[in-house]
Amino acid sequence: MSATTTASTAGTRAPRAETERARNENRLGRRLVAPAVIVMLLVTAFPILRALWLSFYSYSLTAPDDREFIGLSNYVTALTDSLFWRDIGVTVVYMLVTVAFELVIGFAFALVMHRVVFARGLIRTSILIPYGIITVVSGFAWQFAFTYQNGFVNSWLPFVPTDFNWFGDTLPAMIAIMVSEIWKTTPFMSLLLLAGLAQVSDDMVEAAKVDGATWWQRMYKVILPNMRAAIMVAVLFRALDAYRIFDNIFVMTAGAEGTESISFLTYRQSIEQFQLGMGSALAVLLFLSVLLVAFVIVKLFRVDLAQARGEG
């Protein structure tokens, strides 16, 4: 922070000029961030407040004039409904399984990329393609791959009958959805972990090696602890992203066979069923549940939020 340092040294000599300057800097700073803050809040804060307000009403798109204040009824209905809890459970499963797989595979990829000295451009390009590809496209690619009429998955996998219908039951359908999700997002995870890996000083690893530490010992005692912050930030972001899973479900099963996530339930209520009141209540509950998930992860893993915020 060169600017601040200069300013404060100057400040000891000329206190009046300094307050003036600090005030100007304060004003300028606020002016510069104002557009960003306004745009960010415009499309989020206002709608979520409106959702909060609408959630107290029984309000259908087909009968806007019959809007009726019903207090907390929508919340009571949702929270006592088994479908709501089932979808929460399904969503948590998506989140835990995908993040776990991404973490393991992503770390393996990061190790490979960290060590490799050849074909770096090729690897970088390849790994960025799943990251950049449209989620809907990934969903289609995997859906077609898993269908038994045209897909290749059944014929490549041992012990799977060639006419096995992956989308005929909850578990296989969820597996197909998670495969698409994991494929698409592992590269992101591996790049974040690669950055963390780059921060582990080689000297420390070498020193451990000289001391006779095995590969596993070096990994557990030196590398992983030093990457902790990077791993936690990656987990936090991916977990929250996975908790909001929507695109793949929409494309691959449209929520059939109990593969629906809480985001999909909210979407269906407000968009397909036209129930704006109940949809808003679910939107608020979704919002709160995301906060809860974030809170749990931050507390559980003691993620350094300052770093997540990029305050460095």
Binding site: T266, G279, A283, F287
Partner: peptide, 11 residues
């Protein structure tokens, strides 16, 4: 971290 879907209906 905002759940995008929760904005869909009010937006």
């Amino acid at each position: 971290m905002f759940p995008v879907v929760s904005l869909v209906s009010p937006l």
